[in-house]
Write a protein that binds this DNA or RNA. Sequence first.
DNA 1: AAGCCTTTGTGAATACGCGCACAAAGTCAC
DNA 2: GTGACTTTGTGCGCGTATTCACAAAGGCTT
Lengths: 247, 247
Amino acid sequence: MTTPRQNRRRERAARGIPEATVARLPVYLRALTGLQERGVATVSSEELAAAAGVNSAKLRKDLSHLGSYGTRGVGYEVEYLVYQISRELGLTQDWVVAIIGVGNLGRALAGYGGFASRGFRVAGLLDADDSIVGQEISGMTVEHIDRLEDMIARHGVSIAVIATPAGAAQGVCDRVVAAGVTSVLNFAPTVLTVPDGVDVRKVDLSIELQILAFHEQRKAGGPDGPAPLVAGDAPPGTKQYVEPVEA
Amino acid sequence: MTTPRQNRRRERAARGIPEATVARLPVYLRALTGLQERGVATVSSEELAAAAGVNSAKLRKDLSHLGSYGTRGVGYEVEYLVYQISRELGLTQDWVVAIIGVGNLGRALAGYGGFASRGFRVAGLLDADDSIVGQEISGMTVEHIDRLEDMIARHGVSIAVIATPAGAAQGVCDRVVAAGVTSVLNFAPTVLTVPDGVDVRKVDLSIELQILAFHEQRKAGGPDGPAPLVAGDAPPGTKQYVEPVEA
DNA sequence: AAGCCTTTGTGAATACGCGCACAAAGTCAC
DNA sequence: GTGACTTTGTGCGCGTATTCACAAAGGCTT
């Protein structure tokens, strides 16, 4: 038996899904699994868009990049859409992850439930600090960074999560790339330089806070407006930046 | 004494810095402070762009939104630029942060050095779990979530960091917004709904990993290409999605 | 003081993303 | 079977972001 829907499958998906769409697919997926757990079988673009916090036209256009998976007059079948998005994102296969750097953040990542739940398996934890190596964290024993290449090869690690101090990040990155890893998630506050063909995504708390601070300041009147200064409200014309004494 | 540069100060900055630019300013700032520590006094757009990992024309256009702070033929004075960007981002004043949810991630955030270093002061940690309340973490005692409104008011909290489980996030968010907070950094894997005038930024590990997985799969040949399936390489035409038995 | 050299700041062209609004397509009631 | 109703899929216009390429501007040397 073949439904019309399946015949239409993948007539789109012209090998070029916009990056902005890719970034939203995981959000849709999460909303859909939520609906699934609540036993919802069918959802309209309007409802799903509301759950995902986006415009419904945008949602429909995003989904149209994957193919025609909806039914006009009805909506989308939740379970089917979950499968299609999962498949497009590559979540129908397992991805092996190594976490490098076991400080506060590395520990938090190691214990993060969201990894396992979606086909991401943590192969191991690595650190350079001898006082940390050997510790048991979230059921895994921390290994020494010397074993990095070995671990990547043996477990088939395809995604490296870098949670080291800033100074060590580029060195670690170079090593994982040399070992064949082509996807890196970087939590260290540094710009990583990688060769073409390697993807790096960056998560940076400090940057997010600074962006919030910018907007917060705006609301309060902007940098030239009321109360931008902590101390020493200077009279107009006074320099706020003190030039260095040397030439 | 007034230099020509200072006369020219803020002739631009027409109260509308593009969002994309704002998001890059913290990156520039970090690169600049790095140069500053290494004793570099002057930097060209080419050098700074390389350090920040962006195109040099983009960097110049970004900086031009703040004003004309460079010197043609020479470049930008590092210290001066650090000051101007800090000022524009609102880092010349202190921002008070509350961390809500003291699980693995909340703990990591509490101990994150990047907070204090740039004018972000953690007012306190809050959690709903009685077995966590009272614990001392990074020099702070975890308080009960009941005291949320009290803490916001007394410490003048302006940014709330939500690191609770997904289910609790919206409730907590509603409370902090009701208490007057207009900037939220959300680590919980949920879409937060807020009234106009409130900024929410989201950090989501799981989403970042899924985006990486998408690209990684692409490199391996795409979902229709080689090896997307873990098991059961089905002959062509075989359905990969099994329809539920019920209608 | 004049001319050369470097680097900024920006106009213009291109690409990208978003959202409206509507035709096409399907369902459901009768 | 027919018509009314619902919801998808998308053409189109608009605004934003990115990049190129160059004229304007400053410094430095002679």
